[in-house]
């Protein structure tokens, strides 16, 4: 069973989001998503400074057999990306909620996070997909 930390927010498209103490939002993909994709071989992160809209395709994760767009959960500006993924994309598989984070956004409206799924609601999404 995939792990779904209770303190995070989620998208139906399997991203997680965490509001940090400095007001930024860290984004990654869920444990369920990394398992479904299989071994990642490449992660394309956005340029720092890019403005993104909520729901905009912001990063791409690739396994051997699939490529998936990663959507930003909030509108804002990309302020940091996980450079380590350039040489070690497997961090996403090994530690999806920690060292495998993808990018950080400075949200224009932190309230947007409230509209995301909580852990229970996301667990239902995972269950529905079987």
């Amino acid at each position: 069973m995939a792990s779904i930390p209770a303190e995070l927010k989620y998208l139906e498209s399997h991203e997680w989001a965490r509001l940090e103490a400095d007001g930024s939002v860290t984004v990654g993909i869920s444990d369920h998503a990394q398992a479904a994709l299989g071994d990642l071989v490449f992660v394309e992160v956005p340029e720092v400074g890019r403005s993104v809209d909520k729901g905009a395709a912001t990063a791409v994760v690739e396994s051997v057999k699939a490529a998936s767009d990663i959507y930003s959960p909030v509108t804002g500006e990309v302020i940091a990306v996980n450079e380590a993924l350039g040489s070690t994309p497997e961090l996403v598989n090994q530690d999806p909620y920690g060292a495998g984070w993808l990018f950080k956004v400075k949200p224009a409206d932190p309230g947007e996070l409230d509209a995301l799924l909580d852990a229970d609601a996301y667990a239902d999404v995972v269950k529905r997909e079987g």
Binding site: V41, F42, E62, S63, V64, K65, A66, A67
Partner: peptide, 9 residues
């Protein structure tokens, strides 16, 4: 690098 190609992307 088949993820560049039409059958996946």
């Amino acid at each position: 690098l088949q993820a560049r190609e039409q059958h996946i992307r």
